[in-house]
Computed example of a mutant assay.
Amino acid sequence: MSRMVNCVLLKKEAEGLTRVPYPGDLGKRVFENVSQEAWTQWVSHQTILMNEYRLSPINPKDRKFLEEEMDKFFFGDGPSAIDNLTPQG
């Protein structure tokens, strides 16, 4: 049986992640409060951030930025607007 969580992003009970997706306290918090569906949304947003700003997860400064964005995405005011990005539709 799948593990269920009350997802902070979707505001409903949904299937949880199967493992902690990120190290440290932030990863534990995400594991306990974020659904698989919401995590997939974050991964898509993170990919856009990495491509738009040419970020590397190897670079400590870039990794810190992505951690802060992840925290805002799930537990803050939502995703930051991305400069010069035109929504597709």
Rank of each mutant, 00 (worst) to 15 (best):
P23W: 10
P23Y: 13
G24H: 12
D25M: 14
L26N: 09
L26I: 15
K28C: 01
R29F: 13
V30N: 04
V30K: 01
F31W: 03
F31D: 00
E32K: 15
E32L: 15
E32I: 03
E32S: 13
E32D: 15
N33H: 10
N33S: 15
N33D: 01
N33T: 11
V34C: 07
V34Y: 03
S35L: 04
Q36N: 10
E37L: 13
E37Y: 05
E37N: 09
A38Y: 00
W39F: 12
W39V: 02
T40N: 13
T40D: 07
Q41R: 14
W42H: 06
W42R: 08
W42C: 09
W42L: 09
W42A: 10
S44E: 12
S44T: 03
H45Q: 09
Q46P: 06
T47K: 11
I48G: 07
L49I: 00
L49Q: 01
L49A: 02
M50S: 08
M50Q: 08
N51L: 05
E52V: 12
E52W: 05
E52L: 03
E52Y: 01
Y53T: 09
R54E: 10
R54P: 01
L55M: 14
L55E: 00
S56N: 15
S56Q: 12
S56Y: 02
P57L: 05
P57T: 08
I58W: 02
N59Y: 04
N59E: 10
P60W: 01
P60K: 03
K61V: 15
K61I: 10
D62I: 03
D62H: 12
D62M: 04
D62W: 01
